[in-house]
Nucleic acid binder design. Structure first.
Length: 207
DNA sequence: AGGACGATTAACT
DNA sequence: GTTAATCGTCCTC
């Protein structure tokens, strides 16, 4: 896709990414579920507290890949969107593998059925073979680790949206988008609430 | 320098 | 339905 596709408001891009096809080597995935993160205006975004070495790519121009490591074992992939500097991105949450099944199964041996190959953000990044070394890659040049292409037309009436999965803040923002009835869409799960500790509140010691 | 937590998954009961 | 795995990142002191 041209950079102008990613340069639009992130909610618009998230909606339009459904049905698009992402390709990494021989593996192609048709996107069925994504989430929008609106940078500095979104407490749930990694970019909310300003740029860090990890999130620097989000603060650059749209059309680049942001890959992060989480839970000590998983990679997740985002596409940087919106006007330059807004630090917005779309998390690729799930999709249907439509080509390269053999390589996809090698990359994700734990998947028991093909439906599970790219069901969930870490599985999707895994099936695409993306890791931290791919973060910062340009999506709009040939030969990169990931390319995004238009898929078959999606009926806008099939697009649903609702709260994002697994987050503890900004839970009221309905910025998760998915295709109704797709078996690869992950089930909703609220963020796990944990008790705040003294160290986190910064109030452990008396003043 | 120390510690809490995570845009999750797989393997359990 | 529950929970362990596992470590980079970032906040706090």
């Amino acid at each position: 896709m041209p950079r102008a596709f990613f340069a639009r408001p992130v909610l618009e891009v998230a909606h339009d990414l459904l049905g698009c096809v992402v390709c990494a080597g021989p593996v192609s995935v048709r996107l069925t579920e994504v989430e929008a993160y609106q940078g500095l205006d979104d407490p749930a975004s990694h970019a909310f507290r300003g740029p860090t070495p990890r999130t620097q790519v989000m603060f650059g121009p749209p059309g680049f890949l942001y890959v992060y490591f989480t839970y000590g074992m998983h990679w997740c992939a985002n596409l940087v969107c919106g006007p330059n500097g807004t630090a917005s991105a779309v998390l690729l949450r799930a999709g249907e593998v439509i080509a390269g099944h053999e390589v996809a199964r090698q990359r994700r041996p734990a998947a028991r059925v093909d439906r599970d190959l790219a069901r969930g953000p870490a599985r999707l990044a895994g099936v695409l073979g993306l890791t931290g070394t791919d973060s910062g890659a340009d999506l709009c040049v040939r030969g990169g680790p990931l390319s995004v292409m238009a898929g078959s037309t999606v009926d806008s009436a099939a697009v649903r949206n609702g709260p994002r999965v697994g987050i503890r803040v900004a839970t009221e923002r309905p910025w998760r988008f998915w295709l109704d009835g797709e078996p690869t869409v992950s089930t909703f799960r609220p963020g796990v609430l944990r008790k705040r500790t003294n160290a986190q509140t910064g109030r452990s010691k008396l003043k």
